[in-house]
Design a protein around this nucleic acid. Structure first.
Lengths: 152, 152
DNA sequence: AAAAAGTCTATTTATACAATAGACTTTATT
DNA sequence: AATAAAGTCTATTGTATAAATAGACTTTTT
């Protein structure tokens, strides 16, 4: 049940953006280069990922000097599910239980297929977490943990 | 978060084995050929999968005429998690949250990594379902559904 | 001895993931 | 106007994994 590198890097970048405080009442803009260095990711690969996220409407960007990326919406309105699906596709382990991209699988009878029932549960469990966790939730959880540990 | 074909076929086969009633007080033995036909799976591919499951101690087999495969333990003692891990590897979406196969991922600080926290939740949600669902549970659910629908 | 089953390992093919490359566009600054 | 610093876009390559196929071998029953 692996998360791809694209998904991992994209989620990391978005989480980082959500945790970047606004400077001087301006937008919290971050460059590809900065993210790739902080997270140890190939800049070229990240570029593609952020572009995809931009085209999906989750990021905005500004070209030219002083430009960079910033969240298209407040962190509380961007769920991890949106990011995940944009980069990794459907959450469902098997197509016949996908809500966003249903396709029949090969079983003789979907209604009574035991595998389908269980995988439906798995899909729902994953989707519940990813769709109900926003970037704001993650940022808060991180800072709460830091506080609790007395770090930084 | 896809389930591989190996995983899918293996799970289907095991579920089928769990639903096969014993005939004449003998072991409920089923041949590769029969499973592959009923489930529309390449016999050669299934062969590998069942062998893997056998080597993992989940299936037993008998060679020669009248032979075939049968569950190594009662259906109530085989969880879907065991089958899944045997065929598809760790449940965790990211290595650093795997209980069975931990490996550090690249984040600067694991303790405060937001992605890791969420993926830990996802791992637990999936593992809870797969590890607490046995083949007997699946068989029961299937037959209950059939009964409710008045099928067969 | 023959037939019907599983065993084992190697090889091939297909697909998807990960990464790299390079030419192009926009914007700010000088 | 020129230059530099950013993002844009698409194509290509490399690599790993998944999926499938192949074939020679072993065991068991009749």
């Amino acid at each position: 049940m692996r998360l791809s590198k694209r998904g991992e890097y994209g989620l990391r970048a978005m989480i980082m953006l959500a945790g970047t405080p606004e400077k001087d009442a301006s937008l919290p803009m971050v460059q590809i280069k900065e993210i790739s260095q902080r997270e140890q990711i190939s800049a070229k690969f990240l570029e593609q990922i952020l572009l995809t996220l931009k085209n999906a409407g989750l990021l905005h960007s500004k070209m030219g000097i002083g430009g960079g990326y910033y969240l298209a919406k407040p962190p509380s309105e961007i769920s991890l599910g949106q990011i995940f699906r944009t980069l990794d596709g459907p959450v469902a382990p098997i197509k016949c239980v996908s809500q966003m991209a249903y396709e029949p699988c090969g079983c003789p009878d979907e209604q009574t297929c035991g595998l389908r029932m269980v995988m439906g549960d798995v899909r729902n469990a994953i989707a519940n977490i990813l769709d109900h966790t926003t970037l704001a939730d993650v940022a808060k959880r991180q800072s709460d943990t830091r506080k609790k540990l007395g770090i930084k």
